[in-house]
Design a protein around this nucleic acid. Sequence first.
DNA 1: TCGTTTAGTTGAACTTGTTCAACTATTTTC
DNA 2: GAAAATAGTTGAACAAGTTCAACTAAACGA
Lengths: 193, 193
Amino acid sequence: MINDLLIENIDEDGQFSKTQQEEFCAYFQQKTITKKTFLLEQGEVCKWEGFVLDGCFRIFTIDKNGNENTLYFAAKNWWLMDIDSFMNHKPSDLNIQALEDSKVLLISQKDKLTLYESIPIAEKLFRVMFQKSIVAWQRRLVRNHSLTAKERYAHFIGSYPEIASKLTDRQTSSYLGITHEFLSKIKKQLQIQ
Amino acid sequence: MINDLLIENIDEDGQFSKTQQEEFCAYFQQKTITKKTFLLEQGEVCKWEGFVLDGCFRIFTIDKNGNENTLYFAAKNWWLMDIDSFMNHKPSDLNIQALEDSKVLLISQKDKLTLYESIPIAEKLFRVMFQKSIVAWQRRLVRNHSLTAKERYAHFIGSYPEIASKLTDRQTSSYLGITHEFLSKIKKQLQIQ
DNA sequence: TCGTTTAGTTGAACTTGTTCAACTATTTTC
DNA sequence: GAAAATAGTTGAACAAGTTCAACTAAACGA
């Protein structure tokens, strides 16, 4: 019952024993989500941490003006959750929606705590995962401050071509922090050149 | 030899025993840094994680055009480091400079590893710390995408008045992602209203 | 304390990105 | 397969933020 993709993702360096791999995977439940379904809607408490086995999700907020703001996309081999809501048992500000038919592994709050106690190495592996995530957020901030929208778009499709190809322009623009009209103009400019 | 500020910061819920508090603190070395001194310069490997006892630091990048981009400020009771450089022993992209005479506690890479092995609870406490940090980065991104520069400035001085009061406008503007000229104009507008 | 550097201010011209509206193309749904 | 909804395109007017240059104010170093 070991899920290779999951184990490979969290335990790159093979620190788990075979038994631990099995126990680790046993905490997760597989779930199938159809396109456009919300895995989490703002207002709900996020009761799980998720790992994408297949498909793609968009994690986004909606502000008071109704504008959507995409935090990130989670395709195969990515984690997804509202950390704040999950940690503090409070209503989420985030929406998590499947962009296509998808499969995820979910672990509940209770099982996550049990996991950390039962497999102490897991604590370390998730700490490292969160550290890497911070680095990625810092880099994104710097890009947002130092690059133009055109440069950010080029960086995005260059860095995540598989994800970018699955998105509508509206979804891409809400990730880049620009309007979809302006993205349309950027794409036109890039064609001409 | 227990440093109350440090213990209070990392172990809010009092999970450490007295002995563990002492051992934890023993890994840290105090260092005094004079105003304008760099605790880390880009190109160096970040060999420590730091905790600010007193004073204030600015953590920033400099891009190819020479533009400075401030990731964050670290005042008393904040952590500071280049996570990527520290984790992966690679040259840092970041600069960390004291804005005033400051005192920090530093823990070396080696001691950090020893600490995690010797006090397993520390692993959990740092994991939680990193999780909180991700939440903060996500919120900052959403603000950058959904608020105007004027609104971001108002949010910043409202949220961190003590830090904001120590900064030059150039430092503040490099945090907000705008030019210092434009910040000057924003401040004028806010006065008139 | 004087001279020099650094920081802040202001205005004018400019660039980047937004808004709104009208249109076309594509998907979805029944 | 038609109708309806959603997505993308384009243009014109506008707003937000930048650039450059010239100036003033403040801080710093010898």
